[in-house]
Design a protein around this nucleic acid. Structure first.
Lengths: 363, 363
DNA sequence: GTGATAAATGTAAGCGCTTACATTCAATCT
DNA sequence: AGATTGAATGTAAGCGCTTACATTTATCAC
């Protein structure tokens, strides 16, 4: 194995690190293939610029040596990392998992890697995470929902870092968004609830402050109420963070109201599952005595008994489209201007007709 | 071709990128603070080496300029990224979410960032992901379970990349592991099932090939069976990937067996939930007609009715300890040699006494 | 063939940081 | 005072890659 180093001014001994192990470098490959580092680099990054002959030779050396480019060096020289950062509110339940998985899979097809951080629904933490992700070289970001401080947007704008907003969609054309219209979706569900004859409804929502999606959903219920000629003021709304326990607790409160609501619309499936369980624990039949609806259509919605009537959100499609939008933005393409993704109501068993028993309002 | 320009006095104009935006560099900070780049670097990385006076001045400039170190450059120069890679089988259900969240939180305390990839339970994909993560500069890895090809281990060893194995724990001291003993845990549960008088039991497991955790759990049931003087051969075992649907389907098969098992032990909660639903759909009472148990104790175990009797795995603690182990390894500390984490049986409502109806074995 | 043009390849200048080593400086000792 | 010492700081050499530009080689019209 003699390598004819024609020009080897490179006297430097490769300094092995700690245990004498060193990864092969571009130079090693170039030497072994008898070409320059530039050519090797081109074989890897823009193969069409290189003769087939050369390319094959180089690639076989790459394989033989087990060469893998050094991430830091590449990032430094190319000024991009091919990394996309995503900040989601939580990793702990399935709400974002499905969409994120699809997002990642689609990114991978474009040679992009996903870096995930979670904000625990806290705007201050979200800012930290954005900073961290940018510091780690994220070329672009996926953000959930529109609502965040102007300074965050300003910073992204100023850096020229592309981002797309997801899980929400509005007419607001200042931001690139791939999502669905939370208001429309929830309003349709509320209308359906009214179709079932319910007149006393209530809402369990995530905290609305700093969460436009939650706010849109609640507002949709109130708007639908008004459209039916009912008084939105009378719709009880409880805010509580997304969790089964909180859903149960909120349901407990709502069920002790006078008049007792006959339908409870929940801001997401997790709350709904809690509410459902609570109603049953209190000896009420769902939907016989009280109907419960969810939002998202995550797996658990199908599993509980009665299965949840909820709003199906095309998470996978959303993730996929978001990834495509980001890949496009990175290539300098125009922002896609597609309309919102369509949600649909999934009617299962937790929504039924309002009980026609006389309400105890008047005693 | 003489390029004897030995001293190229840094005349270079800072070339702004595309939109004229440029992040401040170390040099900018150094200039503004009237010190060398080395000092600025030290202020950031080992503040104790610098006078308080200097440090304060430098840090204030850092803040004023909004300086953030360039990740690639840092990685390249320091030969580490402070990034830990984790490859988990799936992101889509909650099995790994809780532990991973804790893992990440603890890593953050040590200044480390988590990069997650998922393998879809496929060894070949896992290898790809490992390669990807390493290429992206992961300083260390979190791996789930022991079982993977020797070449993967060899490669890690050869590169000198530290890793810790989690979600499993064995006497095998060749690898650093932070986990629990799947065999012990499942055997205890099986024993409990036998205590309830069950004699005809069955198992729904994840595919055992390439998954030591699944294998340990199944083997534990068989061992417990033998210890009770029953014939392990008669324990029906169905293998199917983790999902509610698959759990349901497998349950359907098991329930048509003669004699029909009176207790079905599932490899995890997701399968158990599916099994539970299926039994109920077929008009059987759980645990009246058939008992079902899970494994993991994820949220859904508490939610289904009857609530699942399952094995509680201290995922958070596991994640935390794994992170500490990795941080230690990275600092050159010895591998921790703690015993396995302790699991405990959570008795809820899906496991009950064996039905004392006469079995239809003899007709 | 010749020259012009295009395609393939090579050369080498950085990218922004860390760190070994050199230098300066102040405190302490003789 | 001068010598000694250790802490603080500066100098500058890379880290491994990409890419603008220079050079070589192939292609083609005439």
């Amino acid at each position: 194995m003699e390598q004819s180093r024609k020009t080897a001014p490179r006297t430097r001994e490769r300094t092995p690190k700690r245990n004498g192990i060193t990864q092969p470098t571009l130079q090693d490959v170039a030497d072994a293939a008898g070409v320059s580092t530039a050519t090797v680099s081109r074989c890897l990054n823009s193969p069409e610029q290189v003769t087939v002959r050369t390319r094959d030779r180089v690639l076989s050396v790459v394989k033989k040596l087990g060469y893998a480019p050094n991430f830091g060096a590449r990032a430094l020289a190319a000024k991009r990392t091919n990394t996309i950062g995503a900040i989601i509110p939580t990793m702990e339940n399935a709400i974002f998992a499905r969409g994120l998985q699809a997002f990642q899979e689609e990114l991978a097809k474009h040679g992009l890697t996903l870096l995930v951080a979670s904000s625990s629904y806290r705007p201050d933490l979200e800012e930290d995470q954005i900073r961290t992700l940018l510091a780690r070289g994220a070329d672009a970001l996926l953000l959930i929902g529109f609502e965040r401080s102007a300074s965050v947007y300003a910073q992204l704008e100023q850096r020229g870092t592309p981002y797309v907003i997801s899980w929400s969609q509005k007419e607001d054309r200042r931001h690139v968004a791939v999502g669905f219209n939370n208001h429309t979706a929830m309003k349709a569900l509320a209308a359906r609830v009214f179709d079932f004859g319910h007149e006393h409804i209530a809402v369990i929502s995530a905290p609305q402050a700093e969460n436009d999606r939650a706010r849109d959903r609640v507002q949709a219920v109130l708007d639908a109420t008004a459209e039916r000629g009912l008084d939105p003021q009378k719709v009880a709304v409880i805010e509580t963070p997304y969790s089964v326990e909180n859903g149960a607790e909120a349901m407990g409160e709502l069920l002790s109201l006078q008049p007792r609501p006959t339908a409870v619309l929940c801001g997401n499936d997790v709350l709904a599952v809690g509410a459902l369980g609570q109603a049953q624990s209190l000896g009420l039949s769902v939907p016989g005595d009280v109907s419960v609806t969810g939002f998202d259509d995550i797996e658990i919605a199908r599993i509980v008994r009665p299965a949840l009537t909820t709003v199906h959100v095309p998470h996978r499609e959303m993730g996929r489209q978001a990834a495509r939008a980001i890949a496009g933005l990175l290539k300098g393409e125009e922002a896609p201007v597609e309309g919102p993704l369509l949600t649909r109501i999934v009617e299962r068993d937790s929504l039924g007709p309002a009980p026609n028993t006389v309400l105890d309002r008047d005693n």
